[in-house]
Design a protein around this nucleic acid. Sequence first.
DNA 1: TTAGCTTCCGACCGATCGGTTGCTATATTC
DNA 2: GAATATAGCAACCGATCGGTCGGAAGCTAA
Lengths: 202, 202
Amino acid sequence: MSPRKSVAEARRTRERIVERGVAIASVEGLEGLTIGRLATDLGMSKAGILGHFGTKEALQLAALDEASAVFQRVVWQPAAHETPGLPRLRAVCEAWITYLEREREIFPGGCLFTTASVEFDARGGRVRDAVARLYRLWRHRLVGELRLAVTAGDLPPGTDPEQVAYELVGLYLALNQAIQLFADPLAPDRTRRALDRLLTRA
Amino acid sequence: MSPRKSVAEARRTRERIVERGVAIASVEGLEGLTIGRLATDLGMSKAGILGHFGTKEALQLAALDEASAVFQRVVWQPAAHETPGLPRLRAVCEAWITYLEREREIFPGGCLFTTASVEFDARGGRVRDAVARLYRLWRHRLVGELRLAVTAGDLPPGTDPEQVAYELVGLYLALNQAIQLFADPLAPDRTRRALDRLLTRA
DNA sequence: TTAGCTTCCGACCGATCGGTTGCTATATTC
DNA sequence: GAATATAGCAACCGATCGGTCGGAAGCTAA
């Protein structure tokens, strides 16, 4: 019925698929993201969806890439102009809280990274590798910023950036759970309190 | 072919199903726990499996209950004889680390609670409710132990038990991820270091 | 000994899964 | 304007999903 669209329209279609796919996957998981569900939601045929990616795995990887782009745009980019080190780090942490609290339109089921990391942590395959790679990438940025904060003297000289990054990730896993599973309105402030204890001159 | 077993054998069969179900679910998630897979693994028919539970949902709930019993047995019970308050809490925390590190036979894919909580945190239904209830139950125990530690003077008087429990959960979410996704051998010690900072007289 | 209860099986159900194929209709290229 | 490339569709594939049903076989209570 609906035949070929212009290349621009086709790209737009692909974007719509990925956007919707990210939303579904944040709720149902990357395995629960099915071609049929996506087709129904978008009023397309399954073949029309799959034509853009080839396989479900490629679609899952595209959803992960999109989630990474959103994370960059919402959490890191707004803090880019801050002075490197602790000030920028604190801006990132605050944006991270807001991201988990408010990005319900993009991630109605919470941060896709969290969902995907737990879903695939015990399996093999390209999706698992991509999840691990992205997690490493973002933690690497965190560690870099922490190192700057230490050399600038904004954190005690003995501080281990890897250790602090580890604890930061834990705080955000807890925040995601508190928001999604318990709808706990106190969780953001709990996170801020923990951050204050973690990111002070000592 | 294989007809009725004695009631004792039938109970044993049910236990085998739940045990295997917990192992599968820890890797594939509670949705990825399928009747067919379970039947193949145990050399049974699907009807034979389902006869013990009625529905898949009931099977999922049984797996959650079993996971809770394991947690009780491995993490809390060994610490039961310790003196209430901080000593018992530290024993629990140490057992918790060992539990995430070593319980690969029971949970080859990591703590089932973690998997299930992320898998169902954005959905409705009985399974989600059960996950939330169990999480609340264990956190409640944690808070109770923390309260004892505070009144005993083993933690600073201003300590907020809910806050500390929140951060403890975050640490264990991070540990589960570090072990399962990154196979990071340093993670247990990182957790211990964070615990020391979190559970000292000030 | 017998009657009934229960466990488990084999066969089957409709629905859905990921994916393939052949095609139409148009956008693009020459 | 003709040739080509391609987005998207309808129909279909084998496999698997959760679940049902009738019966076989043996434990258990009478």
